[in-house]
Design a binder for these strands. Structure first.
Lengths: 205, 205
DNA sequence: GATTATATAGACCAGTCGGTCTAATTCCGG
DNA sequence: CCGGAATTAGACCGACTGGTCTATATAATC
């Protein structure tokens, strides 16, 4: 692909620091094409940043940048999750709202973007790699946020944890199916089924 | 990685044809490290096959080989699914047995292997690519097999299809989590939850 | 045994990879 | 304004990428 994509992001002089631009650009490109398929020069070009800056901020190179990008994406989505919890009254409503939000993002990107964590998760050998560690932490954070919300609804802790893990798996899997089929339906369906399951687990329900 | 992995697979002269060896090796490497991260020379070396043979059997190169590898993997897993259905009496039991089988595979590979389809699904831009098409077909086959089994248990067709999609998403997502966490628990849990959901959907249940 | 497809073999190519390194620049306290 | 640190800049490197091409070997057909 010679044009490599859209023109560099330097239109009108980006205000964010070079470090932030690198993280944001890397996260986006990993979402769109995966970890290995995304070249350093591609990230650099679109972020409008020279190679020296990359290795200044991330001495570990691509792996370090990936870890930071995953961490940032995980933090962002965790925040979205908690905001959804605040808006919706309960955990089930939170999951529905979250699914709707993800579905909207998928459609807005014309199904080019997926979960930035999943792509790296599948391409990195599970081990002590910095990126692999970031992947584990990202999943753990989401699972904890989900579990906490479900438990707050009165579901026993063990069951809440299991439901959180299952919900997370269903949504991650649905994101893959949605991208492959270019349809947000799997995500909406998965969120809806998971929400139903969570409602059924509540003591009064 | 200079050693590139284990020694070539040519120990004791593999009986399978060069074409079959290429497909099997490619599928395995895609599972372990993803599509883009797997080089042609790595596949060739481990399959014990010269480059000429690759382009003889797959004129479209890497993408064509990937499509064939996905197709083969999808066919194999579809067969496993149907065998599980035959052994277990109903769809729910099938899903449980299938999950158990996948969990065993994960453990046997020390969590190095995942779903060969998912990795390619996340790295290929969804479009008219041969590999992207193969991914869509693979998911469609699994969903159809699941849906058919659930419907045969007496569940209405529409609901069976929805459950099939949800089950597929949950298992695919669980495979990602399992790989990242180096634990088969998410897969067993996802299969168990999905099976419960399927049992609950049956008319008599 | 000659001839024709089929398949194997690998040298070779331009391009890109992630990473290193030195030089120039910008920033900022004194 | 000066001097040291932080940052930017990009040339450069060996290794490797997917892909092409020609030559050879093997299998099948007459």
């Amino acid at each position: 692909m010679p044009p490599t994509g859209p023109e560099p992001d330097r239109t009108a002089r980006r205000p964010a620091s070079a470090r932030d631009r690198l993280i944001a650009t890397a996260a986006r490109l990993f979402q769109e094409q995966g970890y290995a398929a995304t070249g350093l020069n591609e990230i650099l070009g679109q972020a409008g940043t020279p190679k020296g800056s990359l290795y200044h901020y991330f001495p570990d190179g691509k792996a370090g940048l990936a870890a930071a990008a995953i961490e940032a994406a995980a933090a962002g989505l965790e925040t979205s999750l908690k905001e959804a919890r605040a808006r919706a009254g309960d955990a089930a409503g939170m999951v529905e709202a979250y699914g709707e939000m993800l579905a909207g993002w998928l459609e807005a990107s014309q199904f080019r973007r997926g979960c930035p964590v999943a792509t790296v998760a599948l391409e990195v050998t599970p081990g002590d790699d910095a990126a692999a560690q970031a992947v584990r932490e990202a999943f753990a954070r989401w699972r904890a946020a989900l579990s906490q919300a479900i438990h707050a609804d009165g579901v026993a802790l063990a069951r809440a944890g299991a439901l959180a893990g299952f919900t997370l798996a269903a949504i991650e899997g649905a994101l893959i199916l949605a991208r492959a089929e270019a349809s947000a339906e799997p995500v909406r369906a998965a969120a809806g089924e998971a929400a139903t399951l969570i409602r059924a687990a509540r003591p009064q329900g």
